[in-house]
Design a protein around this nucleic acid. Structure first.
Length: 251
DNA sequence: GCTCATGTTCCCCT
DNA sequence: CAGGGGAACATGAG
């Protein structure tokens, strides 16, 4: 599930471990520890977790624990005695509880680093929560790719995923296959309004809300229809991902 | 058995 | 260099 709002929810969960000493790190599945050694943070205290795009950055001592959740990751703070989930791969055991990194499909993972985080995350654009209308226009200026492809690109804007991008294009009434270069400034601005709204409305929920008034709440139905006009939604692969849009409203 | 899945990366083209 | 297509990664769920 993890897109920006999901990871923001994991950050809130991680905050329950902030200030606590890490007694030990249990690498239940050590292959998910992609870089660095767990011993570096054992005995250290967690600082305040930060999120950038889909990355969660958790300082501990002089190092950073970098987490990426792939498509099926999540993070839970739980009592030490409570039963673990079968897909809990890495566990940070603290006093009074433990932070459990769960990941069924094992995309993503955890890195422990004392150096610049960009060496691990790669270049990332500004977080989607910090992009105003003017900046949005600048970031997309001169790009020749499609709306779908460009908004999915984490080096342009960080945090948007497949659901959020489809939701954004649907709100803006723009065909996701459209090239940015052929959108008027007015439509670019509409795209920003839509993205900003989707981000803000998703943050409190900790996920893109699967409610009926949103595309996300309608897209997976057998006979999926546009929540606004009732037209049968179109589904196709765009930029390598399953994409859903309303062929009547989105031009 | 088959298809599809909220992500990223790498290789090959244009 | 910018972009697009496709495959790979790992593990289910339906």
């Amino acid at each position: 599930m993890p897109e920006l709002p999901d990871v923001e929810g994991f950050r809130r969960e991680a905050r329950k471990a902030a200030g606590r000493r890490i007694e030990r790190v249990e690498a239940v599945d050590a292959t998910l520890l992609r870089g660095g050694r767990a011993a570096v943070v054992e005995g250290e205290r967690f600082g305040d977790p930060v999120r950038h795009g889909k990355w969660l950055i958790f300082p501990a001592g002089g190092a950073e624990v970098l987490m990426h959740f792939g498509m099926t990751g999540r993070l839970d703070w739980a009592p030490r005695r409570s039963e673990r989930h079968r897909h809990d791969r890495i566990v940070f055991v603290c006093r009074g509880g433990e932070l459990r990194y769960r990941n069924m499909r094992k995309f993503g993972g955890i890195w422990i680093s004392r150096q610049g985080r960009e060496r691990i995350t790669g270049p990332l654009g500004p977080d989607a929560t910090e992009v105003d209308g003017e900046r949005f226009g600048e970031l997309l200026a001169g790009r020749r790719g499609t709306v779908k492809h460009t908004l999915m690109d984490q080096t342009v804007i960080a945090g948007l995923g497949n659901l959020m991008v489809d939701e954004t294009a649907w709100r803006a009434r723009i065909d996701p296959r459209r090239r940015l270069s052929e959108l008027s400034p007015r439509r670019i601005d509409r795209l920003w309004e839509a993205m900003d709204g989707v981000v803000r409305d998703s943050l409190p929920t900790g996920r893109v809300p699967p409610v009926e008034s949103w595309l996300t709440g309608a897209r997976d139905a057998r006979d999926a229809r546009c929540p606004r006009c009732g037209t049968r939604l179109r589904r196709a692969t765009v930029a390598g991902r399953t994409t859903v849009w309303c062929p009547r409203e989105q031009r």
